[in-house]
Write a protein that binds this DNA or RNA. Structure first.
Length: 569
RNA sequence: CGGGGUGUGGCGCAGUCCGGUAGCGCACCUGGUUUGGGACCAGGGGGCCGAAGGUUCGAAUCCUUUCGCCCCGACCA
């Protein structure tokens, strides 16, 4: 491709609205343009890179036995009503009506669509297993799109759905996807960390996320370097240290005017935060529920929600808190609390002489003992694991890392096949409900993640497999004869099957070199002075900065060697 | 949805406090000189200052409303 005839609008300056490297560089290197918040256009070079990623995804999916389909983006409300998600999905689903007022959603995900499709084509256990997938645009009305293509309102996702007659089959399908995912991310040049994840509202048992470690990641992971345990903070457990905090004391009421937060209380009582019992009121599926944790910990709402088995969980508003505790917000406590359900974190039992709200405005209790002053009715792990907590597997301290979620695989079980009445006959002629798995890869986000992991201060450094072109040919010729000679080099590389971006623009060399560094193709060839004088072409490897010169007859061969050797550690 | 910020040529910004009809750098066009790490000289084109309303002799600037965008939070497979 001749750059003089190509759209590659590179920019010298960073766009003012880009915060993260991938976003900044994708704009600057002319790969994408913003259309509106959370909506991006892919320009030719950006699309080429995106196609490389999708090609890898396809190849590995097909290799794992999955079959590509293409589902409509417009999905009828009826489909969603079958599974119940028309109601439960919430405002992140774009809903529209046609001229006859028929309701539709722009597909945010396609469990229903694929389940309905498979339902219509399978009838016997002999038809299973099947694994169907598509690479298609998803629409989600994100509360806050950000980080360019990493969290946008419209993005490309590969979503696959497996259907099996029994648990064994599902396990097998799931494992196949798990290894296909490893191969996909590996080929894209991405280092991913597979982590255990909460299966959330999707239901189902096992769930694994593929995270790319990155400062700008929106998820926090807990990782044990000792035994390899890794989990999303939403789900991560940790081993409790067994030492009792606080000292034995008599229960007494203390006047604490307007002192509500743990920080204020710690200052007032001059004690460690962990001897306080933090008591928070939630509303779970419409019912008030009280959660109690030690003052040094944050409640993990995902854990609480899954312990309660609730579909919806939110912090109670002030009015609800007042009616549950009989006091102003900030003075809730487990003593004399008449809430129907109180969930205690495991850490609570280890505190004695605790300080906690008295359910009376401007008063706290000190010297509170679990068991003596209140009953631990329900106990669970409902707090967030943090950096330094002990690994639940091996007991060694864990570290935290930020990560971008690029893939997620789930064992869904019968959640959709049951509600949408899918069944097949087994070998006894009896109807059985197939078990489902679902497997997603954020394709556009994967591209951004690749860039997050592969760039320097000058620009991108593409891994070979996803680079929009193999070679960046920089021509520095003055006379017509020189230009013709460079054209010949270009043509020769093309006929050798290499993907070449040829900078034939009438610009000064510095500009061309800077653009080449910015776009970051694996190999740069400079064809200029040394070629016209000594017949030597210069090769520069973007990743290492290494330079060498070769004669034109071995150029293509040398390039192939270099590219083949790239991305090896 | 709450808090904060911002909107001025394609991009990055100044001008707004203190009202007088818009400027800088980059990019772009023409001619010339240049050409191995973001060249130089000369000339040139392009903006109803996010939108609407108001105050005023006069508004990018003051007031009101509104919209977009960005950040933090809430929220969110």
């Amino acid at each position: 491709m001749r750059l003089s005839q190509y759209i590659l609008p590179t920019q010298k300056e960073d766009p003012s609205d880009a915060q993260v490297s991938s976003h900044r560089l994708m704009i600057r290197a002319g790969l994408i343009r913003k259309e509106a918040a959370g909506m991006y256009a892919y320009l030719p070079a950006g699309l080429r890179a995106l196609r490389k990623v999708t090609a890898i995804v396809k190849e590995e999916m097909d290799k794992a036995g999955a079959m590509e389909c293409l589902m409509p983006e417009l999905t009828s409300a009826d489909l969603w009503k079958e599974s119940g998600r028309w109601e439960s999905m919430g405002p992140e689903m774009f809903r529209i009506r046609d001229r006859n007022s028929m309701e539709y959603a722009l597909g945010p995900t396609h469990e229903e669509a694929f389940t309905a499709l498979v339902r219509s084509v399978v009838s016997s256990y002999k038809d299973l297993p099947v694994n169907v997938y598509q690479i298609n645009t998803k629409f989600r009305d994100e509360i806050r799109p950000r980080f360019g293509v990493i969290r946008s309102k419209e993005f490309i996702m590969k979503d696959a759905y497996s259907f099996d007659v029994d648990q064994n089959g599902l396990d097998l399908s799931y494992d196949k996807m798990a290894s296909a995912y490893r191969a996909i991310f590996d080929r894209c040049g991405l280092e991913t960390i597979p982590v255990q994840a909460d299966s959330g509202t999707m239901g189902g048992s096992a769930s694994e996320e593929f995270m790319v470690a990155s400062e700008v990641g929106e998820e926090t992971l807990l990782i044990c370097r000792e035994c390899g345990y890794s989990a999303n903070q939403e789900k991560a457990g940790f081993k409790r240290e067994d030492n009792v905090a606080g000292e034995v004391a008599e229960l007494r009421e203390v006047h604490t005017p307007n002192i509500k937060t743990i920080d204020d209380l710690a200052a007032f009582f001059k004690c460690e935060k962990k001897v306080f019992l933090k008591t928070i009121v939630f509303v779970a599926d419409g019912e008030a529920v009280v959660a109690v944790v030690t003052g040094d910990r944050d409640i993990n709402e995902t854990k609480l929600k899954s312990f309660l088995g609730a579909a919806e969980l939110e912090q109670a508003d002030d009015k609800t808190v007042e009616s549950v505790t009989g006091s102003a917000v900030g003075f809730a406590g487990p003593v004399n609390c008449d809430a129907k359900r109180i969930v205690f974190d495991y850490g609570v039992a280890q505190v004695q002489g605790a300080i906690t709200g008295a359910n009376k405005t401007d008063y706290h209790f000190a010297g509170v003992h679990p068991g003596r002053d209140f009953v631990i009715s329900e106990e669970a792990d409902i707090v967030e694991a943090i950096d330094g907590d002990l690994c639940p597997e091996c007991g060694k301290p864990m570290i935290t890392r930020k990560g971008i979620e690029v893939g997620h695989i789930f064992k869904l079980g019968k959640k959709y096949t049951e509600s949408m009445k899918v069944n097949v006959l087994d070998n006894n002629g009896k109807a059985v409900v197939p078990l489902m798995g679902c497997y997603g890869i954020g394709v556009t986000r994967t591209l951004a993640a690749v860039i997050e992991q592969h760039h320097d201060e000058k620009g991108l450094i593409w891994p070979k497999a996803v680079a929009p072109f193999d070679v960046h040919l920089v021509g520095i010729g003055k006379s017509e004869g020189e230009k013709a000679a460079i054209d010949e080099v270009y043509t020769a590389l093309l006929s050798d099957g290499l993907e070449v971006l040829y900078d034939d623009r009438k610009l000064s060399p510095g500009v061309k070199f800077a653009d080449a560094d910015l776009l970051g193709l694996p190999v740069r060839i400079t064809c200029g002075k040394s070629y016209f004088q000594d017949g030597e072409l210069e090769i520069k490897i973007r990743k290492t900065g290494e330079q060498l010169t070769v004669k034109p007859d071995v150029l293509a061969k040398k390039i192939r060697e270099i590219i083949a050797g790239l991305d090896r550690e």
